[in-house]
Design a protein around this nucleic acid. Structure first.
Lengths: 249, 249
DNA sequence: GTCAATAAAATTATACGATATATGATCCGG
DNA sequence: CCGGATCATATATCGTATAATTTTATTGAC
């Protein structure tokens, strides 16, 4: 590369996170996206002109522009000649995009956001469990059992345990046989994964999540839609309670 | 611009849609996104190297790259040095992204997709109506009434009428007081708008959609959650029936 | 012959500079 | 005070050069 100093820093000399790994445009998009979703860059904020902004970030204009395209694709910003690039109103944000969800959760999510999130889960996932109980294949059931075993063996304190938890929920959504539902739920789950890790760090003795998971599994195994729905409802309520303890401790 | 022929065409001389209006990177993203969502470019497809691909599209490499960043942000493709840019498996697509939804609907949507879509609507929107009936403000109610009046006055055969229909549903979701729900429903509605226009073109005497809309409105006005939920259910069922008639005529 | 380390090649990733285009702002005449 | 022409400015697009990364091929040792 031509004239790029290895530790990117702005004109004032304030160095920022390395952005070392991965693609630069992705890192910049993530950086700006987090600031937008977290309210550091408020709605209506107009960014500096691309040339200046790129220089202050220590990246090329191409990289900044590609980052803006990513944010535009997620509805966070919009650009127009002469007017510049500005942060869109929340109404235009792709709220269900996995990144937009994750960026919001990372930055001290508001009570309203968490309320909305769990309200949506409560609207969708019990019905999804109902459908999974009706439509699941034996193979999916076996995979779910394996995921639960792994989850119990490694616990949510480990990365592998949390991965197993997500795999279980993913399999459940897959069993519901609805691609859109799967997309919705995987967005939500990947966002929630952030908080699950946080819960483990904060709580000294986190509640054992296995009972409600096993209960849900049994109803799906028994092809009992009504009870599967109720079991999922219980599971989400417990997850919400855990999160409230973890966040407002 | 330096050396750009006005009618973009590939090396074989096969001219394609002007892409005249709007931003070029957006047009290219839309073009490729439609082809991906429509299955013309199948999962696993590897695009030509950027330099060649850009030339064959008649755009600069920057434009093509920015288009790829948009598609990447929506999960449709992923790029790696040496390996190239390829179409992701459907599991990775952001199925609830408004564009991804619209691109799928534009290209002869599969029965499975429409089934999934209306199944999701049926899962979410009745509950949303229930919440709207509980939480709506008088002002929102008045706006909804205005939207319905406009919808009746202009009918769904006109652009203004369809806009009023979308406004009504948007207001309803807004009244439900859940930003995530609003995002979900506006994605779905904007995608469905495409088919609403198509229905009007195809059916010589489309069914009058006002009765079920008025019925839904009355229940929200009366703050009757249970009945609002049922009314929404009826509305969606009718919309589904209309669509089936329009598509499989 | 197999496998691991190494070298090579191809493609994206990044940087930089120049020009075109669109749009908001300004100025001016009525 | 308003409408239209003009201007200024930021994005949009183009083009080229170089760096970094990853796959693939090659080589060498055992």
């Amino acid at each position: 590369m031509t004239g790029m100093d290895e530790d990117r820093q702005d004109k004032d000399g304030a160095a920022f996170a390395p952005l070392a790994t991965g693609r630069l445009h992705h890192a910049v998009a993530q950086r700006l996206g987090t600031q937008i979703a977290g309210g550091v860059l408020p709605v209506g904020h107009v960014f500096a002109a691309e040339v200046d902004h790129a220089e202050s970030l220590g990246v090329s204009r191409s990289v900044l522009r590609e980052a803006f395209r990513i944010l535009t694709a997620k509805g966070l910003v919009s650009s127009r000649p002469k007017a510049g690039t500005r942060v869109n109103e929340r109404r235009k944000w792709s709220m269900l995009d996995p990144d937009v969800l994750a960026w919001q959760i990372q930055s001290e999510p508001s009570d309203a956001f968490l309320r909305d999130l769990f309200e949506l889960r409560m609207m969708v996932e019990p019905q999804a469990a109902e459908m999974a109980a009706q439509r699941r294949s034996d193979e999916q059931l076996a995979d779910m059992a394996n995921a639960l075993d792994a989850m119990e063996r490694y616990t949510l304190a480990t990365e592998k345990g949390r991965a197993a938890d997500q795999r279980f929920h993913g399999l459940l959504m897959e069993a519901a046989q609805n691609e859109l539902l799967y997309g919705l739920s995987s967005s939500i789950m990947s966002a929630i994964a952030w908080t699950t890790a946080a819960k483990q760090r904060v709580q000294e003795a986190p509640r054992d999540p296995m009972p409600e998971h096993r209960a849900l599994y049994r109803e799906i195994e028994a092809r009992n839609p009504r009870q599967a729905q109720k079991a999922m409802r219980v599971l989400i309520e417990l997850a919400l309670a855990d999160m409230e303890v973890a966040l407002r401790r």
